[in-house]
Each structure stands twice: as structure tokens, then as C-alpha cells.
Write a protein that binds this DNA or RNA. Structure first.
Lengths: 146, 146
DNA sequence: TTAGGAGTTAAAGTGCACTTGAAGTCAAGA
DNA sequence: TCTTGACTTCAAGTGCACTTTAACTCCTAA
């Protein structure tokens, strides 16, 4: 498949495909003339990339996840499943944080207080405290500013 | 209050305070010598800014929200409450989208399929379709790429 | 064979939300 | 008064994830 075909079928822009390749997320063969030709399997990788982006993973993290795919053989369902199961935890954590924020709204901001010391919304260290060294890539809405 | 004091008490870096002022989110008086002096009310505005950022609002949106505060009089609880009630809808939408994604994981990616045409995770147009012209500022994990 | 749509590269640009740096000024305590 | 830490501005830099541009080459249908 050509870049244009993959772009159309995957929904990623051609420039994004080249970028992903430069970042080591996907690979391609080349024709004599130097044009890219993709294996069908790239579509699944790209689907994974898109889904992972939606879950809030950075390209860095996605690259790390894709690196755990087997080199020689075609990835199986179990391979993809193993990788994507990690998202579950992440999503649960995000949902939990958002729910805490939402419920806090009713009791705290909903009442108009916005107390600086006590309010967990205005001062969400406790809600997002997990965003320590190990949580660099939490999606921005939940990430604690420096 | 000086910049340093506000920074310490609000948790925003001094550079961020200057940036917010340049962006019209907060204001300050000046001393004879040109240094900033802040009113105590700026702390509440900054608390609002921080909370709104956590909810995923852009500075542009926060500025718009702050513009609806009364010019002349001190904002009341009702004023803050009115503004922050909008977040509730946003949070609900986000939580809903994340839950759909999470539940989809179990049935779809959990099984390893990642089907391009049918999978709502790999191809989340239906989940995130709301990210049309009016939803520019959905937090990145839920925003649909162009 | 040839026109022209599709592809190539490297480098620069974009947008957001800031931070950093340089060079200089202010203000408060000793 | 003097020192020194805190402040000032403006411009440039940062990080992520790409997109755009320019100048050029490839490949396929007519």
C-alpha cells in the first residue's frame, strides 16, 4: 500500500505517517524509486496508535508498548490484548479522578466557596497527587502543574 | 501583595502570573517604581484558573468565563457558582466518553480484534464525534485528530 | 511517451501554555 | 546609605505532535 492509501484507510494524515515512521512507531519498505510501501499490518498498528492517543498515551509511551510486540512473528490477539489491558487501569484512574472532580464541584465550587486551602478542586493536590515522577504522561486535564 | 507572595499562595509560578496578566486573565496595580501589586481577590481568580485548567478548559475559554464576572462589584458565590456549573456538563461528557472507551476495551480490544471498520476504539468517530466545530477544546485524550 | 497526480526530503512553522535568559530597576532591612 | 533579593521587560526557548513549504522525483493511465 502507498502512503495515500494507508492515510485514507487509517485516517492519519500522510505527514503523520512519515512522522510516526521517523519516531519508530511504524515501518515501511521502499520501491526502487524510494517511495514507501506498507504492509497491511501497519493498519492495525495505526489503529492501536489512534486508540492509545485517545486514551491519553504519549507517542513515547506508545512506542514503548509497541516495542513489546514480537519481532519475528505476526502479533496475535493475545499480544494486542496484553498491551491494551494496561489502558484499563489508566482509564479507571482517569474516570475516578474526573468523578472526584465532578462530585467535588457540587459540594465545593457548586457552593461558590473555592476556598484556597481546603478546596480540592482549586487545590487538587490530593486528587491528582498521583501525578508524581512516575505519572508524567497523565492527560493534561489531570496533570498537576509544576 | 507582590508577585512572589501571590505565586507562593496560589501555587502559580511568577512567570505564569505575568503570562496570565498578559492574556487578560488577571490584573494588577503598579507601584511608583512599576512593580505589580495584587488585590487579594486575585487569589480566587487564580484558584478558578487552576481548577478550570484541571477540568480541561483552555486559557481562551477561561478568559471568556471570567469576562462574565461583574465589572463593578465583587463577585458573589452565585457568580462563581454560575460559571462553574458549566464544568459539570463537560465533566459528565468526559466521564461518559472514557467509560465508553473503557467498556469498549473489554469487548473489542480486550478480544484483540482492533477491527478498523467496526471498532469504536480504533475508529472512535462515534464516541468522539461530538468533537466538531463546537468542541475545539475537549481535553486532548478525547479530542478527535483532524 | 508523457502529463500530472502522488510521492520524496529537510527544514521550518504551528499552537498552547508557559519558562528561561539577559540586562537592568526597585525596595526594604542592616 | 547601601546591599541584595525581588522585581521589571522583551525576546527567545521548550515540548509535544504534528503540518507546511520548497524543491524535487516517481509512477501510472491515457
Amino acid at each position: 500500500m502507498t502512503v495515500g492509501e494507508v492515510a485514507a484507510r487509517s485516517g492519519h494524515a500522510p505527514s503523520a505517517l512519515r512522522y510516526y515512521e521517523s519516531e519508530g512507531l511504524i515501518t515501511s519498505e521502499r520501491t526502487e524509486g524510494g517511495q514507501r510501501r506498507y504492509d497491511r499490518s501497519v493498519l492495525r498498528r495505526l489503529a492501536f496508535v489512534r486508540a492509545a492517543r485517545h486514551v491519553g498515551l504519549s507517542l513515547e509511551e506508545i512506542r514503548a508498548a509497541l516495542r513489546t510486540l514480537p519481532e519475528g512473528r505476526t502479533p496475535t490477539k493475545a499480544d494486542w490484548s496484553r498491551i491494551s489491558r494496561l489502558w484499563r487501569d489508566r482509564l479507571d484512574a482517569e474516570i475516578e479522578a474526573l468523578e472526584a472532580l465532578r462530585d467535588g464541584l457540587d459540594s465545593c465550587i457548586g457552593c461558590g466557596c473555592l476556598s484556597l486551602q481546603r478546596c480540592r478542586i482549586a487545590n487538587p493536590g490530593d486528587v491528582a497527587a498521583r501525578a508524581g515522577p512516575g505519572a508524567r504522561y497523565l492527560p493534561s486535564p489531570l496533570r498537576e502543574p509544576e
